[in-house]
Design a protein around this nucleic acid. Structure first.
Lengths: 206, 206, 206, 206
DNA sequence: AATGAATGAGTATTCATTCAT
DNA sequence: CATGAATGAATACTCATTCAT
């Protein structure tokens, strides 16, 4: 009856604020219970909106997950980009990128799992927005490799795409026990070992 | 599909034959529609048995998948073991193992996906029978690396566990596009490139 | 059966109306086919709602039965309470209560069976809401007995709890043939006989 | 190969022994887990026979329960019959019968529950063998009542059938808390109270 | 007679999504 | 815009019973 009854209906908020609230609640919920066990109603409740409102901003539960992961990726890319500005040497850039990736696995294992299990394995992943972000992210490594080749510290004729995959694959495979089992994960040690492997290989040099 | 002589009831068969029939039907079905969309009734029908019979041999739908994957792993291990007998040189052994793994990805992408998405990511994977098989399989690489170190062709003090993870991770990560997208996968090229990386690294040697 | 105006979707109704519709359909269905053979889908169809809607109002099929029985009990208690207001004499009150119980057995045998077989025998019955209702109902008899003792028409030192149990037990046991077999049940005769027994016993008075 | 291989197949035992073994195992199993949760395979295993053998001696799981209950009833009837031989006075006979029934509830609550919930409530109970046994058992009470009427200690014109039902009903209803809840049950006290009620009623005698 | 492998019917329940209000 | 009541598809699993051996 008064013109400001907030009891029955949520005040109209800016779409940005709404989107942010929902994504924030979703991220927390997905991280804590996983995608399958997360319920839209719970997310809506935690975000302080009605279930239907979630669907006004996101097409589906899955689209909401994609948005969460994309946002996480964007922040990661921004962070990497900024830090890379202060590093010139190709080898050091590579070391930083390896370390940064190991570090994100260590700090955000649940989000990594969501990305690996729910996004990257999906049929519609290729050419999706998150795929593009992932490519941008991986391109930092490609760029560092090319830089190194150009400046002569890395060999000519490298299959940079394969090396890029090898670096990320090595880290992620090695992290499996940490991500899915309860194993330990030592960012520093992994970084050092992987860099040694990538730089000089295993063959004995005479 | 049905060449049964008795119309009413299935002849009593040996457990081995029944198990084999069911696993075979299950493997085909899982490979073609995936785990989630596979229905036990369909598998039973394809195996020529009643639904309840599946449960006489396998505790659950998931246990059936595990059995299928385990059987596939065992055959792979047997094959690798036999072929390895004819190869002495550590480097050549490593090359064979890389090639064999790339090859299995190329030939059985669907089974690889089932293993990655349904088994390896599961909570109960660690210390499970399939985990043991996977370890046995990965140990071939570890053994080859140690051999090489012993015989002096590989450097001393290598972190063999990390290198093992790097090899499998590199292959699997590189295969992502092939496994989940529709990308091409070139076993020979991948093998060559990865071996070069692992053996000599990327650093320029003066 | 269907007088819906909207073809596609059910109008939003008041929860009371929905609850009532579903309970009504459930009561009819439970009464006609019993609890075990009743299917939720059938009840939903008869109530004119979707299956999931039943679960929005009732936690489970069993919770629905409990609600039906509780509602039936409440109406019975209300009826007894009102009628008792017009009866003062303890003996007459007792006679009425015996008659009323015999009468409910005669009119609602199926609901009695549901209560006896599905509710009262269940592990969670004691201290459940229906248990409380049953206690309220039985307390009418206890109160009448105590009234009679106080006013001197009944003996002092009676074990009222046992007498209460005896009255209900006698009626229900006597009704077994009617409830589970196809025997006749004569409310008037049972009332008269039971009251005579309870009042004066069987011993010969000199 | 030898003519006495007992390893593969059970020696042919007398049908009586087999029947007894199976019923014994069944009684134990039914008593401990209830009818619904009892599995034929478990009973067969405990009896030392194959599942199919159970069905050679009993038509169904339910028929097996009926046989168990019937056997229990027969023993009870035999016991009551013998004890009654030493009691002449109708009132004392009645007291014994009330006590004996209370006592069987106290000692065999699980079997009572099986009888009440699984047998007596069943559609096919009326005119079944167990129904006949139950009638024989209840007839002890009827006979005692008639004796008492004849000898003048009980009133003439009693509705003996109703009084019989009242006695059993009172006991069983009073025992509900003991049978289905965790309440106490005092055989002596119940016997005394019920007999007082039945003999002299509740009305104040001037 | 004894076996035990094979059968197969039968259903409650969840929750992402929709759309009338 | 926001709501939240209503929807409905979709399926693994059990176990009493049968009957070929």
């Amino acid at each position: 009856m008064k013109d400001q009854t907030t009891t029955t209906r949520n005040r109209r908020l800016s779409p940005e604020k709404r989107t942010h609230d929902i994504m924030s609640a979703a991220r927390d919920h997905f991280v804590s219970v996983g995608f399958a066990d997360a319920s839209v109603s719970e997310i809506a409740a935690n975000a302080g909106v009605a279930e239907g409102t979630v669907y006004r901003f996101f097409e589906s539960k899955r689209a909401l997950l994609v948005a969460v992961i994309a946002s996480w990726f964007e922040a990661l890319i921004k962070d990497v980009s900024e830090n890379l500005d202060g590093i010139q040497d190709p080898t050091e850039r590579l070391r930083f990128l390896v370390w940064r990736h190991a570090r994100i696995i260590e700090t955000d294992p649940a989000l990594c799992r969501l990305f690996f299990d729910q996004i990257r394995s999906a049929e519609d992943y290729v050419n999706s927005p998150v795929h593009a972000l992932n490519r941008d992210y991986a391109d930092f490594v490609v760029a560092a490799l090319k830089d190194g080749v150009r400046s002569g510290v890395f060999q000519r004729g490298l299959n940079v795409a394969l090396i890029r995959d090898a670096i990320f694959g090595a880290l992620e495979h090695h992290a499996t026990g940490y991500l899915y089992g309860g194993a330990k994960f030592n960012t520093a040690k992994v970084t050092q070992g992987l860099l040694a492997l990538v730089l000089t290989g295993i063959a004995h040099k005479d």
